[in-house]
Simulated scan of single mutants.
Amino acid sequence: MTTQLQTAPQTMFAQGQIEGIDQPVIGAYFDALNDENYDALVELFSEAGVLQPPFDDPLIGRQAIAHYLKAEALGMRAYPAKGALLETTEAGDRTYQIRGRVQLPLFSVNVAWQFRLNPEDEILAVTVDLLATLEELIQYRR
């Protein structure tokens, strides 16, 4: 009889492992992304949440975001390193910026993520910016 080992989901980032960030929903985002648990990840967004990936149009709504991640993010691992709160609006929305690296199957690249959260700690928007030179990106195409 074969026993299948089950491992608990990684919760490294949700436990506060991003320097300067104490926002559990941001940690949960990275944990779900790295676990390829895109259904859990999109539940962190508000109903009309937006994901702005590099080089693509914005994805609006949980269903569109989940579809995109299931097609484009398999095998990707995010390594956020440090971040900061950039702004708090009068309405209570907060904007955070996090910097780190993303490991893709063929290469890794420095990345900046910008998260906008509402007062209920739902993700309103995530913008992902690659921090690579044009020469570096061209090299990856070869």
Rank of each mutant, 00 (worst) to 15 (best):
R62S: 01
R62V: 00
G83E: 12
L41F: 06
A32V: 08
Y96A: 11
A71M: 12
G83C: 08
N37Q: 12
V42Q: 02
F30S: 07
G92E: 07
A73G: 01
A71R: 06
L33T: 12
A64R: 00
M76Q: 14
T95F: 05
R77Q: 06
A84P: 14
R62L: 03
A71K: 02
Y38D: 04
F30I: 13
E47I: 06
T95H: 10
L44E: 12
L69I: 01
L33W: 15
A91M: 15
F55L: 09
A91P: 00
L59T: 05
D93A: 12
P53R: 08
E72M: 13
G75Q: 00
G92Q: 03
G61Y: 00
F55S: 08
Q52K: 13
Y79S: 11
K82Y: 14
F30G: 04
E87S: 14
G83M: 10
N37G: 13
D35T: 09
A73W: 04
A28G: 07
E47F: 13
A84K: 15
F55E: 07
G75P: 06
D93C: 08
G83Q: 03
P53L: 03
Y68G: 04
F55D: 08
F45Y: 13
E43D: 15
A64Q: 06
R77W: 05
R77V: 06
F55K: 12
L69A: 03
